[in-house]
Design a protein around this nucleic acid. Sequence first.
DNA 1: CACTTACTCAACCGATTGGTTGACAAAGCG
DNA 2: CGCTTTGTCAACCAATCGGTTGAGTAAGTG
Lengths: 120, 120
Amino acid sequence: MVDDQLSRVFSALADPTRRDIVARLAGGDATVNELAEPYDVTVQAVSKHIKVLEQAGLVSRTRDAQRRPCHLEGEVFDLMTKWIERYRREAEDRFRRLDAVLEQMEQRSAHDNMPKEEAS
Amino acid sequence: MVDDQLSRVFSALADPTRRDIVARLAGGDATVNELAEPYDVTVQAVSKHIKVLEQAGLVSRTRDAQRRPCHLEGEVFDLMTKWIERYRREAEDRFRRLDAVLEQMEQRSAHDNMPKEEAS
DNA sequence: CACTTACTCAACCGATTGGTTGACAAAGCG
DNA sequence: CGCTTTGTCAACCAATCGGTTGAGTAAGTG
């Protein structure tokens, strides 16, 4: 099994059914049977999916008689967002720097017929 | 194999080695051997990881003699961020609404006289 | 009490995954 | 020309994954 939380979260959301469950839970809490209803799989399979989401920290469960209402936990999204944002920003910064370099090269190679204005 | 892009991206980032590769590529392009160097696995294994990242759209490759420099593609992160942000926001909104309801209940139970007609 | 509802656990199955080794292609270098 | 570097492809293997069926638990209902 995957050991670190970030891996568990990404891994949990790699499955379309589980993403759909998350999407539906974002609209409100629901029981296992309610969640299982629209899919063409057994309740046991959905129960497994929920367990995966639970272990990733994306979903929590309470008890209401025989029912086990599932609740979407928002905080874990922060973990992902932080990771994603960090590298996206770096990638974009590098891209911008590269862009600047290319622009400079462009200007230099065409300095004869280019306007004297220097766009810094 | 996973069919949709979002699944491929999440699935690709579910592996710690692949996340590390992405992290390192955020610092600049690198060849397969350079990327493989720090890990305790064969170059072939790393080559496979890169292929997974490539098919997820996270990495692109050019050619430089025998070398295949890998480049991090930033745009795909948007796909993830959009998905994440959407459901996080909904979850947080619901949380705030629940908070408001609980607060209201708190205030109401503080009163000894409960209103006869309960709004639903 | 028996019965139904809601759900989980255990065992199994086929497909996929992450790793290996070995062979091979493609390009630069002696 | 051979040799090295850089990387991929193919075949295999053990572990995991998503699904199944069947049994079992826990709680409300007749």
